[in-house]
Simulated scan of single mutants.
Amino acid sequence: MGFVSLAGCGLPRSGPTKSEIFAGSVLQEGDAFVVSVNSRVTRATAVTPAFGFSSGFRNAGVMGSDTIAAGDRLSITVFENVKDDPLLGNTGQRVTPLEEVQVDGQGFIFIPYAGRIKAAGQTPEGLRDAITRKLDTQTPDPQVTVTRLAGDGSTVSVSGSVAAQGVYPIERPTRTLTAMIAKAGGVAIEPEAALVRVTRGNSSGQVWLTDLYANPKNDIPLRPGDQIVVERDTRAFTALGATGSQTRVPFETQTLSAVEAIASVGGLNTNWADPTGVFVLRNEPAEIANEVLGRSDLRGDQRMIYVLDLTQPTGMFEARDFLVRDGDTLLVTEAPYTQWTKALAAINGTASGAAAIDTLAGG
């Protein structure tokens, strides 16, 4: 009588039993749909985040590396064909360097004796011709060179999980996304868990780092003012019950199967776990829930409990193919005998304690 009473009381355990979870199903007037995982269910629930860049990003075209923009810096040198009285230099100085000429916010530069000249939108060659025409009427046969130095007008910012955050100029070697990330020292986290987001004005797009390198279409041309952020995937699931550890676990790869999720927390606890009672709990969108259940009347998110039986001939294959998603709860129930083992241990402990008390009292 005492054993039955002890077994029925609240012994310590890691979570609900398999029978208690089934008792919460809609068929038992509960509020969750309990579904056994098979290949059809696996296909219906195999939803992964779809990332990528819009056509506006992909079709922008590589920016001309020699196009001058407002904020750029220019190196300009004027060679004059006179010896005694040059226009720009001192007496006897035929070569006049104009270093670090800044293109102003309106796209103009100022050259002595030539005045303000529109530079933004021109190539160095076009600007050279414009300066030459302005000076030609004042000094005989001037020779002008113009070199574009990347400046504030042609830069992007790179931040997040990269080796060297900062503002970088768009130059000939760094006109695309992958080249600019390499310029910033590459990513500082595991590539499989890295997302790359680009914000351009009011538009934004993101892509997995591995997809960026695997698909050349994702290596978009950059534009001045782009903001590039490399960040770790924020998805995670929660592991509870008779597993190696009970914790919140971040995703380390783009996709994560139930088997991989179990392995990431140390596998099933060999002393407690019930391999027939592995559950994945989630709030499923109505369109997926309807497909899984063969219905069309459900509206809004539905509480779903997916059941994996690892003892079945195909159980391990189903667990290998079934994808865990962001926010899921992975629950491994305890084997039925575990509670009896705990009850017996409690009884033995109680009996030992009573014997010790009798011994002390008799002494």
Rank of each mutant, 00 (worst) to 15 (best):
V101N: 02
W208K: 01
G294T: 03
I117S: 10
F237K: 12
V324H: 01
T45I: 01
I220C: 07
F110T: 14
D66G: 08
T276F: 00
D31C: 03
Y306G: 14
K183N: 12
L195I: 13
V95Y: 09
M1R: 11
L298C: 06
R197A: 09
G267E: 09
I189L: 13
D219F: 08
N271V: 14
G2N: 13
Y168M: 11
V207G: 03
L74E: 00
E80Y: 06
S19F: 05
G24L: 05
T132Q: 15
I170L: 15
Q143I: 09
R43F: 11
V332G: 04
N348H: 04
A263M: 06
A261I: 01
I228K: 03
D226L: 11
V324C: 06
C9N: 08
S39L: 08
A239D: 01
T199K: 15
V187W: 03
Y168A: 06
Q312A: 15
G294R: 03
K134Y: 06
T48M: 11
I220P: 06
T174C: 03
A345V: 00
A44Q: 13
L331A: 05
P224I: 07
L88D: 04
E284A: 09
L209I: 08
N269F: 01
M63V: 12
G71M: 08
A188P: 01
N38Y: 04
P221T: 07
F22T: 00
E29W: 00
F51C: 00
I76T: 02
R128P: 03
E29M: 03
V26D: 01
A114W: 14
T139Y: 13
R175V: 02
G105K: 14
A164Q: 15
V162Y: 11
S65Q: 01
V41C: 01
W208P: 00
S5D: 10
L88A: 07
I181P: 00
T137H: 06
G115L: 09
